[in-house]
Amino acid sequence: MEITIRNCENQSIVLIVGRLDTNTAPELEAALNGITAKEVVLDCSSLEYVSSAGLRVILASHKHLMAAEQRLTLRNICTEVRSVLDMTGFSRILFIE
């Protein structure tokens, strides 16, 4: 997995390329922890796979940002990843574009 962060004004766009699994989830966690922008967008256009380890990081970040009056949005999700968000109920609790 590769992570690229692009900052513009109050927004950080985090592009995730590859697989978000048990081994790579800590990398995303570390990347998200360093962001202070008001709005954080996860660009999932190149995210191929997500397991519960990745979902844990996304949910923890969502909660953390909401508590700090920031916002996490997921964008450009492929069908396979979307199906995992749907089956776990994450589609209903996250901001998805």
């Binding site: 397991s51 519960s52 979902l55 844990r56 949910l59 923890a60 969502h62 909660k63 909401m66 995992v84 089956m87 776990t88 109920g89 609790i93 996250l94």
Partner: peptide, 19 residues
């Protein structure tokens, strides 16, 4: 896992077996 809970009440873990 209870997937009907709002984000604030969802546990961070416990999803693997559910999936």
């Amino acid at each position: 896992a209870d997937i009907s809970l709002p984000a604030e009440e969802r546990e961070i873990g416990g999803l693997g077996i559910f999936i």
